[in-house]
Nucleic acid binder design. Structure first.
Lengths: 355, 355
DNA sequence: TTGTACGCGTTATCAA
DNA sequence: TTGATAACGCGTACAA
């Protein structure tokens, strides 16, 4: 591979006017549609059309323009286009914590869908408070065309406020009048409770996630539905930070409830709970069955491996971006396909311990 | 919280001229420096100076301008600024696989450093081939000020080519004449081999990562240095995909080598190896000691927990972005602080099995 | 089908 | 210290 820059190459090309090559070089090596126009002998506006409005320029002219663009190694200036069109071709994905395995699938799906559509995805983390999150979004908003909000800690009002400025789609959160990609929690929860009931469990603890978590409440509600039908006892404990530490800290209260099974808000909490239990010599699942939600990386690794309810997170990310793109194209939101959840049975659940 | 948009609020403010409010509303609610200039009774260029060149405008005027900007809820148009200045205030971080726990730290550090400096970070995944990666970078390059390349699959030449167009910093990869953030592999490897030698291991396998991995070769080289000094036997096996599957598939060849300890290129491979071993009833560490690199989430979860060499990944991400920002400010690269690595001893390594 | 002319919102240059 | 004016590179009415 040569060590020449593109500008050097231009200067050596005898078919390119020297003054043109010089102008491009002085600009830092990047050509504009004016340069292409000059080389192809047409007006800059024709170049613009040929490059971005297929079919609006005659075939031979289009060919000449593309040839010139290639020779000059033309790349459109996104800022200039955005200034004119108001479109940045960039979408934002806001998550609370990038290192939380739960968001992997969402990130992956969103990235795939965005780049397939020629959009750039900006992933932003909001770690701390809701205020920090709002601020991060504020800063990003002017430079994106739309926002996917996953695992947010903002209030409904705050979200609605932001949604007035740019198209916005939520994941795992419902706010009236806003688009949301929601899992069908029910399918997985029913499977899970049937599984536990079959194993003889008659007293179950639900270890809730953060107080502000919309999805945590939904999971509990669906469990209520199921346990009411089956006559199983259900207690909600929490709220708990959705982390391994949160799970560890909750063990004592869980044990105090004298239930034979715990369903944690997510796998991280479940894992923490299992680790704390192991430290105290409590055997799982013989003395306590444990289950979680999400099926994150790591749930299969821990022993016993964790029984969990898996959601279609990749699909959720794809759908969220898809909706955003539809909105940007002025399309009406069409009915959401159900994102069913499924039970993954592993070793952490077993026959109920004798009371 | 009210349901009014900002534009509605403006129209109701008697201290704001109706025609101004109307103009802003028609533009979609966003005010420009012209609006501020009108409201503050100054020239737009003065507004620009007051907002972006602190100290170049008199205090009273600056105050009036800021007041007007606040009242109009002004947000600068990043595209317009970028068009003029050539700076997008955006950096790209390119990783092979977002879901690989190894990149978490890097992402976290880079994000922190970037947003602290008022920069936006675009994270891009290059999953498949080097070609796909190059294409992704090509697409992003015009809209960023610089690039951090982590875990890349590109060739040196390709990287150099890209680095000519925008400032670029590499993580875990050395390319002559390019800036790179490199761990001091040696410190951790020495600790690891001393640990294994103390346990009586005299025959060790290094299970290499991908053939193109620069860092995999460095790890092996440092191991060579250490084993040569101690007189321990060392065999390299591989290359192996840096995944759990890769580790599982490699077990047979590892066992064939009749070593008492395996050091895997990374924790994912080590975990796969341990899972495959467990399936075959091979006890770890009694029959085989296993160690990895990176200390990812999950290494502590698996049982026995994995002995591993931890690198300062967050710091690496921070440093990479820091270097990029320095380069953008025209500063000279200063000497790199050593990013030492440290051994984390857990249960997967134990006394050498009898031959 | 192509060219003309202007606007997008900001910063930079030059003059006052 | 401030104002006037010209870029930056692209898209797009409108006219030819």
């Amino acid at each position: 591979m040569s060590d020449r820059t593109h500008a050097d190459a231009l200067a050596l090309d005898p078919t390119i006017p020297a003054d043109l090559a010089e102008r491009i070089r002085r600009r830092g090596g990047s050509a504009t549609i004016y340069d292409i126009a000059e080389l192809a002998g047409v007006n800059p506006s024709t170049v613009s059309r040929a490059l971005s409005k297929p079919g609006r320029v005659s075939a031979p002219t289009t060919a000449r323009i593309h040839a010139a663009a290639d020779r000059l190694d033309f790349r459109i200036n996104p800022a200039a286009r955005a200034l004119q069109t108001g479109r940045t071709h960039t979408l934002a994905l806001v998550v609370a914590d990038i290192t939380n395995p739960v968001v992997f699938g969402i990130v992956r799906g969103a990235e795939t869908a965005a780049s397939a559509a020629g959009y750039t995805l900006v992933i932003t983390e909001s770690q701390e408070s809701g205020d920090a999150e709002a601020e991060a979004i504020e800063r990003l908003l002017p430079s994106v065309d739309g926002v996917v909000l996953a695992t947010t800690r903002l209030s409904d009002d705050r979200i609605r406020e932001l949604a007035r400025r740019k198209p916005m789609v939520l994941i795992n959160r419902a706010v009236p009048d806003l688009e949301g990609i929601l899992p069908d929690v029910d399918s997985g929860v029913q499977e899970l409770l049937a599984h536990l009931t079959d194993l003889g469990h008659r007293s179950i603890v639900y270890l809730a996630g953060p107080a502000a978590s919309w999805i945590s409440e939904r999971r509990f509600e669906r469990m209520l539905d199921a346990t009411e039908r089956s006559g199983t006892a259900l207690v909600e404990i929490g709220p708990t930070p959705p982390t391994i530490e949160g799970g560890k800290a909750a063990l004592r209260r869980v044990l105090a409830a004298h239930a034979t099974a715990v369903v944690a808000f997510n796998d991280l909490i479940a894992i923490g709970l299992m680790q704390a239990a192991a430290e105290q010599g409590i055997r799982i699942p013989e003395q306590l069955s444990v289950a979680g939600f999400d099926d994150i990386f790591g749930s299969e690794l821990i022993s016993p491996a964790l029984t969990t309810v898996r959601a279609q997170l990749v699909r959720a990310g794809e759908l969220a971006v898809g909706r955003l793109l539809s909105a940007l194209n002025g399309e009406e939101p069409n009915a959401a396909p159900p994102l069913t959840t499924t039970l993954i049975v592993r070793g952490s659940t077993g026959p109920a311990a004798r009371a």
